[in-house]
Design a protein around this nucleic acid. Structure first.
Lengths: 106, 106
DNA sequence: CCCGATACTACGGTTGACGTTATATATCGC
DNA sequence: GCGATATATAACGTCAACCGTAGTATCGGG
């Protein structure tokens, strides 16, 4: 799982959110480092829906514009939690090894 | 940066290692979850060399077979350290948000 | 009245990982 | 001495995922 996908799931973990709201949430979560393009977001949303990790919560018409709210499913939450563990393990492994050769030499 | 690339840099962080050694190191680091195919490894190594994140340490002829040792450069170590921070931030953000909706409901 | 923000759709391009196959040699079992 | 296995690198082609851009549409601010 790549970073944009991970952050989209993270954005949806708190509460159901519509597409544009996900873009803002991800930007905020990543402190401005990750700004999703529409192509990335809606492509990922379609893929994640197909995989059962997210699902459409509801659709609202606000001022004539359609808002489609997505929600994290139970399998989606499980997948996200598993990925969190994986990221932690990788981060810890890298940090430990960096210290061996580059930590003492600094 | 994707997971295979991250783990290759991590494998090289401790000491210069040759191609096959990287495959074994990554498998060990990821507890068997990531097994690099030759195509993935040498493609990544070439790309990382071009980007200046790794470089050829030395070449040895062992039993008639060439062994090319790769080494993590300073910029490579910096990139890896930056990525560690990023992974940690993402993992923490996801965990905090998972607790909001899925932590209490369990 | 145009511009920017909101909100979604559509299409094409590129990167990086993946899978497979090929090559070569050393060692070990049979 | 012959094939199987392990070591080690190279060279394909393919595919998923992300990226960029543009298009449609509504609303409010200057």
């Amino acid at each position: 799982m790549q970073e944009p996908t991970f952050l989209i799931l993270t954005a949806l973990a708190a509460e159901p959110t519509h597409g544009y709201g996900v873009i803002r949430a991800v930007e905020h979560l990543s402190q401005g480092e990750v700004v999703l393009r529409p192509g990335t977001l809606y492509g990922a949303l379609d893929r994640l829906t197909e995989q059962g990790l997210v699902e459409v919560d509801r659709e609202e018409a606000v001022d004539g514009r359609l808002r489609r709210y997505y929600r994290l499913t139970e399998p989606g939450a499980a997948a996200l939690a598993a990925q969190v563990k994986r990221l932690r393990r990788n981060a810890n492994a890298a940090e430990a090894r960096l210290r061996i050769a580059f930590g003492g030499a600094r």
